[in-house]
Simulated assay, not measured.
Amino acid sequence: MDPTKLRRAIARTPLAPVAAFPKRLATVARHDAKVLRTSARWLVGSREHHNYTYDLTKLSRQHLAWFVSVVCAVPVSQVRAYFGEIESDDALRRHIERTTAGAARRGLADRQVRYARRIGWYAIVRAARPAHVVETGVDKGLGSCVLAAALLRNAAEGHPGRLTSLDINPEAGYLARSEPWSAVVDLVIGDSVATIDALDRPVDLFLHDSDHSRAHEKREFDAVEPKMAPGGLLLTDNVTHTNVLGEHAERTGRRFLAYRETPARHWYPGDGIGVAW
């Protein structure tokens, strides 16, 4: 019998799963071998134990550019130019490398600078030109530096702004404690919800990146809602795990869009950016 006809005949019988098993096993094995090789390289070459850093794949970067373009209503070419700005900021890159090398937690941090989805944060700040940005969850301060770099560029173009960075850990934010970035950053140590409640000026852009439990994320958005300036942007770093911001957008009459990043050469599946506007 012709091999093709034989395969088709077997596919119509209860033996089909058994016959297909070797091919399915080989497909899974190739996939898992690739993941294991990537994981092994990371275990040997990286020091990070959480809040992983990595580059984006070329395709993921392209999708991020279009995501920002749609949210901020700016040409995608302009977004790509913003990506180029932060990636070619040698002063910031050298600062992060030097500060990381001398930090108390240097044994758990990689010196190589990899921004991943944070280039999207940068582009959104550059495009939206917010006067007041609030981020919750600072950790080392990599994201704070990226946001501050965007605000400094905006200020040079006549659109000044400030960043309020909130974290409960007094050791957080060591990357953002140096000039010129610290000149636009107000680092506040304390409970994020209580601090949001105490804000005395409108918020143009809010980024949730702290406790990623669904309950805490919701408390932050509920707390910041009355503080938002007209047309303000709400961002979450937790969009791959919850739909809290999507639900908040629906309740408050906003639009919502989500982007999921794809890391290059990393075992971690990546995070994303959720935006309500």
Results as ranks from 00 to 15, higher is better:
Lys23Ser: 07
Arg24Asn: 07
Ala26Gly: 03
Ala26Val: 06
Ala26Cys: 02
Ala26Leu: 04
Thr27Gln: 13
Thr27Ser: 15
Val28Arg: 15
Val28Ser: 11
Ala29Arg: 12
Ala33His: 07
Lys34Glu: 12
Val35Asp: 10
Leu36Arg: 15
Arg37Leu: 10
Thr38Val: 13
Thr38Glu: 11
Thr38Phe: 03
Ala40Thr: 12
Ala40His: 10
Ala40Gly: 08
Arg41Cys: 10
Trp42Cys: 09
Trp42Ala: 15
Ser46Met: 04
Arg47Gly: 12
Glu48Cys: 07
Glu48Met: 11
Glu48Thr: 03
Glu48Phe: 03
His49Glu: 08
His50Lys: 14
His50Gly: 09
Asn51Pro: 00
Asn51Gln: 07
Asn51Ala: 13
Asp55Ile: 07
Thr57Lys: 01
Thr57Ile: 06
Thr57Ala: 05
Ser60Val: 04
Arg61Lys: 15
Gln62Asp: 11
His63Tyr: 14
Leu64His: 07
Leu64Met: 12
Trp66Gly: 14
Phe67Asn: 08
Val70Pro: 02
Val74Leu: 08
Val74Lys: 05
Ser77Thr: 13
Val79Tyr: 01
Ala81Leu: 05
Ala81Thr: 00
Ala81Gln: 00
Tyr82Ile: 02
Phe83Pro: 00
Phe83Cys: 06
Ile86Gln: 00
Glu87Ala: 03
Glu87Tyr: 01
Ser88Val: 04
Ser88Ile: 05
Asp89Ala: 12
Asp90Arg: 15
Ala91Asn: 14
Arg94Ile: 08
Arg94Lys: 13
His95Glu: 00
Ile96Met: 09
Ile96Asn: 01
Ile96Pro: 03
Thr99Phe: 00
Thr100Gly: 00
Thr100Tyr: 03
Gly102Tyr: 05
Gly102Ile: 08
Gly102Met: 12
Ala103Phe: 06
Arg105Asp: 15
Arg106His: 15
Arg106Leu: 07
Arg106Gly: 13
Leu108Val: 15
Leu108Tyr: 04
Ala109Leu: 14
Ala109Asp: 06
Asp110Leu: 07
Val113Glu: 04
Arg114Tyr: 08
Tyr115Ile: 10
Ala116Ile: 06
Ile119Thr: 11
Gly120Cys: 09
Gly120Lys: 06
Trp121Phe: 10
Trp121Ala: 00
Ala123Gly: 08
Ile124Pro: 01
Val125Asp: 02
Ala127Lys: 03
Ala127Thr: 01
Ala127Gln: 04
Pro130Leu: 02
Ala131Gln: 14
His132Thr: 15
Val133Asn: 01
Val133Trp: 01
Val133Asp: 02
Val133Glu: 03
Val133Met: 06
Lys140Tyr: 13
Leu142His: 02
Gly143Met: 04
Gly143Ile: 01
Gly143Lys: 01
Cys145Tyr: 00
Leu147Met: 10
Ala150Met: 09
Ala150Val: 01
Ala150Gln: 06
Leu152Tyr: 05
Leu152Ile: 10
Ala155Phe: 07
Ala155Trp: 11
Ala155Cys: 09
Ala156Thr: 04
Ala156Val: 05
Glu157Cys: 09
His159Trp: 04
His159Gly: 04
Pro160Gly: 11
Pro160Tyr: 03
Ser165Glu: 02
